[in-house]
Amino acid sequence: MIRFDNVTKIYDSKGRPALDSISLEIDRGEFAFLVGASGSGKSTFLRLVLKEDRATRGAVYVAGQNVANISSWRVPKMRRGIGVVFQDFRLLPQKTVFANVAFAMQVIGKSRGIIRETVPEVLKTVGLEGKENRMPHELSGGEQQRVAIARAVVNRPGILLADEPTGNLDPTTSLGIMKVLDKINQNGTTVVMATHDDDIVNSMRKRVIELRNGVIVRDEAKALYTSMIPVVSSAQKHDDGPRVSEVGSANEAEGNK
């Protein structure tokens, strides 16, 4: 579903690359955590998937298509296949819950009938039935994030990107959000979630991709937030992930010489 092929992203030609020759593949229907400290390249990764930025080198494939080859007027169509959730919810404060979710359908020209049918369904999926007419400021943080998730998935995208969706929420609320994301994932949507919430990662036991300074230092299935394999030395650190692809580790080794 998402494939990075030796992708490098450089914002500032003098500084360190934000992403340094990254190669990885996330399959259809997979749930993957993207972990790492601030500045490790998580957000850059998500921006490249959305074609908000261009890769400096290498190729990014989304749903089998090289995003560099998507002409600018077809980018909106591509983005309809990707839902996005942010740490700060990004709801429209003067619209009701229903209107916020419906907005995502209106702007791509869905008919009123389909909107009236689909929105309550999606709100039920995220656990917000009966709150259609509330305003965002009347909701708790967790509920607001559920609205944002509902908006992200209402057009049934194949991919859901979540950038620190629990960053503003307490642990209990976060767990509720994770259940929603898990449910969406079980309905067949590929979910990529950037986070540094170790409790959540540990409780979910999903694939974990760890970034540090723009390189993948770990890629494990059913993993914890911190590596289960003890780190021996910094030189070996990059080779310890069992799921790091051959190309990726070779490049990282090269990059560290």
Binding site: W73, P76, R79, G83, F103, A104, I108, A152
Partner: peptide, 11 residues
């Protein structure tokens, strides 16, 4: 938000 959910440039 319109951009994120894939509204066309014209809209």
């Amino acid at each position: 938000i319109m951009r994120l959910v894939g509204a066309s440039k014209a809209v």
